[in-house]
């Protein structure tokens, strides 16, 4: 099958890529655009390390054919990170030591941002539900849950102390 050109918005800029059919968004980001913050833990939709936002919704980019994002708005960790300093979610992950190896972190940060956009003050149950598809082998999740609660406080203006 012939390659086609797909156009989508990435971090506020329009990008055009020439792809073979059924190429995933993950592969385009990592291999064609060099955006390797989006990770590659399984390519089976099972780990969430490749989570990006499409029109603000968290999605596993390894399961997303690039054709499906044509004309849509993609946000990766590269586009979330401010030019200087950190996004409040990133800062909360730093403050709560919410990672060890860091391989799950990009996906966790993207997921947390989407969660807080929809629900600025999620309870533990809502956080747990949201995280259900994103695996972490190192931390035992507790510090990640704490980071999300902490970020929620910071973003709503009631700056909370780090939980620890």
């Amino acid at each position: 099958m012939a390659s086609t050109i797909v156009t989508f918005e990435l971090g506020g800029r329009e990008v055009e890529v020439l792809v073979r059919p059924m190429t995933t968004l993950q592969s385009v980001l990592r291999n064609q655009l060099g955006q390797t913050a989006t990770k590659d833990g399984c390519r089976q939709g099972g780990c969430g390390s490749c989570t990006v936002l499409v029109d603000g919704e968290p999605m596993a980019s390894c399961l997303l054919p690039i054709e499906d994002v044509a004309g849509r708005r993609v946000t990766t960790l590269e586009s979330l990170t401010p030019a200087e300093g950190l996004h409040p979610v990133q800062q909360a992950f730093v403050d709560e030591y919410a990672f060890q190896c860091g391989y799950c972190t990009p996906g966790m940060v993207m997921l947390s941002k989407a969660l807080l956009d929809h629900d600025p003050a999620p309870n533990d149950e809502a956080i747990g539900q949201a995280l259900a598809g994103n695996l972490c082998r190192c931390t035992g999740y507790r510090p990640i849950v704490d980071a999300i609660r902490h970020a929620s406080g910071a973003m709503s203006g009631h700056d909370t102390e780090p939980v620890r």
């Binding site: 780990c47 747990g128 995280l131 695996l135 035992g140």
Partner: peptide, 14 residues
């Protein structure tokens, strides 16, 4: 073969 078949507890089981 993958994480859907290899079981581990998630954040709701903490």
């Amino acid at each position: 073969r993958d994480f859907s078949e290899y079981l581990m507890p998630g954040p709701l089981e903490l």
